[in-house]
Amino acid sequence: MTLFKKLLGVGLFLALVLVLVPWLIERSGRWDFYYTLTSVALLSIASAGVWLTFYIGRINIGQGAYALVGGYVSAILVTQAGMNFWLTLPLAGLFCALLSVLIGLPILRLRGVYFAMVTLVLTEVVRLTALALPITNGARGIVNIPLPTELSLFGLTLIPDFGTLANPKLAFYLAAVIMMILSYAVLYRIVHSRLGHLCRSLQQNEELAASIGVNITYLRILAYSISSFFGGIAGASFVNISQSIYPSSFQVVDSVNFMLNCFLGGLGYVFGPMLGTLLLYFGWDLLFTTGKYQLLIYSSLLILLMLVLPNGLLSLRLSRKAKQPAQASPDKQPSGATP
């Protein structure tokens, strides 16, 4: 893809999410879509983190844990220390990244299904910890979290006070979408850098990578902590939009969903998780009208999709455009993925 085409794509995407979508919502009067789309944007940030762990060859079903931790860190800082939400956001992310280094050191030695199961258990551990600790207020959770306040630098208002805005929904939407775009820009940059190539070497064969001199322990931890950072900021923003957090805000189902988003979009594509989140969350939302058959239809579609496109939605485009290289790689990859 040429640079021009790339820029055009980015420009079109920006126009779509920042101008066209608000305009359409304005015209159609479906204001509830703002909340849905804001959630999609935030959840896709967390999914981006999961995708990065997939990229080093680990199945991460523990993103819900970091989203919950990030949410609690931000909620506690806002309600008890009176900090500005926008300052707690990076702090929540950093806290999660630090935590993930501590947790990741032992568990990143695990592989395949073992890692997947341990991360799944991790989600449950965090939920139970939130229930047991006094500072998180147990099952009652933290409610009435104030809306994000003004962020100013040298008297210049960078982000206005959400409480005074005429349309906080739109503001939340824009903030979430911008955060999503920044996260995916970072992800794209990581994947297309030296770091990304090294991560790919881990995905294919860790022993081989180590034998060539790649510091696999360091890389694994780095990728995992970036992933958790994404989870933390997504959780923190989500909590501040819903203005409340409970131990059940992010649980095992959410962790599984983050992973499903990545699968659905396709593991080989940076923007896969974004598409996957949009489809899964929006699909679930649209099926709400079917009442009690919602879960049945949703899961049937999921199974069908898996039968038709086992390699994710974005593989559709690839298989049509680049048939020869796409056929060559599947033969090689399974043997590399399972030593």
């Binding site: 997939f54 699968f263 659905l264 879960l295 899961s299 199974i303 039968l307 086992p310």
Partner: peptide, 17 residues
């Protein structure tokens, strides 16, 4: 499927189903 982890999505779909 290219990566055998894809079966996890299927398994989760069956769990929902």
């Amino acid at each position: 499927s290219v990566r055998e982890e894809s079966t996890m999505l299927l398994a989760a779909g069956i769990a929902f189903f």
